[in-house]
Amino acid sequence: MWRGEYRFLLKNLILKDFRVRYRNMSLGVFWSLLNPLIMLGVYTFVFTKIFTTSTPHWGVFILCGMVPFNFFALAWSAGTTSMIDNAGLVKRVPVPREIMPITSVLSNCLHLLIQIALLLLVAMLSGITVNFNWIWLPVVWTLEVIFVCGLALFFAAVNVYVRDTRYVVESATLVLFWLVPIIYDFSMIPPQYRDIYQYNPLAALILAMREILLSARPPSHVLLEKLTAVSLISFGLGWMVFRRLKNRFYDYL
């Protein structure tokens, strides 16, 4: 039915999100920097004064965990509520519905980009030199965005029918914070659990980033394959479920 220009629509919806979010804040996009900086300060205090850690490049280590996790948590929850938040549009304008969850994930990419810039800056300040392996970074980040888009599509569709879904997502994010190697290293995980960790795309992403930035190594093939497979499966599954469920969105919104 709708035969418009997807790129133009997507651009305008993303711009709307930015403008609405940042226009009324006096600090604007600096909030995206402030949040990880404060958390970095808190973690540094806890892990150098209370627990003692011997991890080299502590700042880079923790940011490699925090940056992808923050993006994941924000984009997942924004994506989950996207159909409800845009109920007015869904019920009145025949735009393709898939655009809503995807927009909410992509609008969070600005956040991600700012935090990535912070991470790279901290990396360079702590003496890590730019090297050829950094070309892998955009690859793994793209995979994460694809993975989160899949999640957002799936959970946005389910949330229309079962409104409690968003609370499940919120709780899951809290649990995931501890089950993903953010404040601890992959090597501290007992060997029998490591395989499972690698199938968690978020954990895999953090591992890949630490390999690239801290060990100056390209991520292992096995890791990349698992990350790619899970991201594509997530997107495909999310897309299929969304397509199946979208016909009755109107009745349930």
């Binding site: 709708w2 035969r3 418009g4 220009e5 133009f8 629509l9 651009k11 305008n12 919806l13 711009l15 709307k16 549009l89 304008v93 735009v95």
Partner: peptide, 12 residues
């Protein structure tokens, strides 16, 4: 205006 035109299916 731009947002609404995009929603209605117009190109840039």
């Amino acid at each position: 205006i731009f947002l609404n035109a995009a929603l209605l299916g117009f190109s840039e």
